[in-house]
């Protein structure tokens, strides 16, 4: 499905501020995987997503989507197959435009034609789809999206993304900026959609419970490397304590390695 081969990303290369953010990452995402990704700040999680979505060019390495090499494909072309939701709920929708206009834009991907698609038939389709969210948005088609709450906007972004039939879904801490109640609602919707539409997804989270509860595979990143890759039975039996323990085991091992190197 998606294959990352020896991916490296170095910021400010050959300067005093050189920062090796992704270190020789190799990863194969299988069709139908729902991967949760945890890791401390600066571990390279978002940079990994930027690499996959094409937001930033790689320093070295290759990316394959369904065995097509997409390493040099531009972001807007990749986004026809890769859907991404950001932490900032404002990034997924246009706040100054009405809900129905937003949905027209996200209805199909790619260049838009010089024709008016919005009509009552399409409006009814939109209403049907919005009912899934159970947020009463189906009665607010003519309201500006800017009037909606962050949770509503993020749920809307999620819905519109799912309906575009992406091959891969990237969720970049998409509930972190929401209040707990809305965060849970959006997360439930996410799990529901991924299950119903059999999507392949990767989700960054700071919440270890969520990382364990959701998905079939868990990655832990630290200092630009994937230090843990657990899936299947092992993942479903995992507890937060075990996860922390594993983290400490690997971290202290690294620490010892560093010390031996330095001495």
């Amino acid at each position: 499905m998606v294959k990352l081969k020896n991916i490296n990303k170095i910021f400010n290369i050959n300067t005093i501020n050189e920062n090796h953010v992704l270190k020789n990452i190799n990863l194969e995402v299988n069709k139908g995987d729902f991967i949760t990704i945890i890791g401390s700040n600066g571990a390279g999680k978002s940079t990994l997503f930027n690499a996959i979505s094409g937001n930033q060019p790689l320093t070295s390495g290759e990316i394959f989507l369904n065995s097509n090499n997409i390493t040099f494909v531009k972001e807007h072309l990749r986004s026809k197959y890769i859907g991404r939701i950001f932490q900032n709920p404002l990034l997924g929708t246009a706040g100054k435009m009405t809900l129905e206009d937003n949905m027209i834009i996200t209805r199909s991907k790619g260049f838009k034609k010089l024709k008016i698609s919005l009509n009552n038939k399409i409006r009814n389709e939109f209403k049907e789809k919005l009912k899934i969210l159970d947020m009463d948005l189906e009665n607010r088609l003519k309201d500006n999206v800017g009037q909606f709450s962050g949770g509503q906007r993020q749920a809307l972004t999620l819905l519109m993304m799912v309906l575009s039939n992406p091959e891969l879904v990237l969720l970049d801490e998409h509930t972190a900026a929401l209040d707990p109640r809305n965060a849970q609602k959006v997360l439930d919707l996410t799990a529901k959609f991924i299950d119903e539409y059999s999507l392949t997804a990767m989700m960054i989270t700071h919440n270890m419970e969520h990382a364990i509860k959701y998905g079939n595979r868990l990655l832990m990143m630290d200092k630009g490397e994937i230090i843990l890759d657990i899936s299947g039975q092992e993942k479903s039996n995992l507890t937060v304590e075990e996860l922390i323990q594993k983290f400490h085991d690997i971290r202290s091992e690294n620490f010892i390695n560093d010390e031996t190197l330095l001495s």
Partner: peptide, 21 residues
Amino acid sequence: TDLGLALGALGDNEQMIISQG
């Protein structure tokens, strides 16, 4: 039109336009 709406969205949220291919 769809194109006209896309122009409106561009001024509002460029990332959305990129995300929509």
